[in-house]
């Protein structure tokens, strides 16, 4: 079965026919041809396919294309402005070494953007929570957190994170 959906893709109103069984990721990569959004695990574990729907970060690999009807979709391609000027988050990832192989970067940046759009003064804790569903196998996360933090209004110096556990978790009874 197929159905017609209308949605806004990176600012452009679109109308198209989608298969009932298509994921949003399939729609973006295979039908629209925008390859910035990556498929990692295909099961919601890695976050490489993160896009923003109506302001919220979602895994496009577990989101049915049929559900995009009437909504606004933003992918990594929608961040830079027309003349090629990069979004502050994209610049920050380059400047802080938040990118190595680049496979997780679109997902990381979209997860970071959804956070900062809602909470422009996100703390380090809040940044870690926002990207908890995004795997990176190169950087060790520190530079990624620094990158997002450099764009957040909340830039007070905090000790560098070397482990994911919080104090509360480690505290003995």
């Amino acid at each position: 079965m197929a159905r017609e959906v209308s949605f806004v893709f990176n600012g452009n109103p679109m109308k198209m026919t989608v298969g009932d069984h298509w994921t949003l990721l399939h729609l973006i990569r295979e039908e629209l041809g925008y390859l910035g959004t990556k498929e990692g695990c295909g099961s919601g574990e890695c976050g490489a396919c993160t896009v923003i729907v109506d302001g919220e970060a979602v895994n496009s690999c577990l989101f049915l294309a049929a559900e995009i009807d009437g909504r606004e979709l933003l992918t990594i391609e929608g961040l830079a402005v027309g003349d090629g000027t990069l979004h502050p988050l994209q610049k920050a990832f380059i400047e802080n070494g938040g990118i190595q192989c680049g496979f997780c970067s679109p997902g990381m940046i979209m997860a970071g953007k959804a956070l900062l759009d809602e909470n422009p003064n996100a703390t380090e804790e809040e940044i870690k929570e926002a990207i908890a569903g995004n795997l990176c196998r190169c950087t060790g996360y520190v530079q990624i957190i620094e990158s997002i933090k450099s764009v957040s209004g909340h830039q007070t110096e905090e000790p560098r994170v070397i482990a994911w556990k919080t104090e509360e978790n480690d505290r003995d009874a």
């Binding site: 919601g44 976050g47 993160t50 919220e56 970060a57 979602v58 895994n59 577990l62 989101f63 997860a111 959804a114 956070l115 929570e129 926002a130 908890a132 569903g133 995004n134």
Partner: peptide, 9 residues
């Protein structure tokens, strides 16, 4: 539970 991306849906 899960991640922000999962909890959103």
């Amino acid at each position: 539970i899960g991640s922000v991306q999962i909890r959103n849906v």
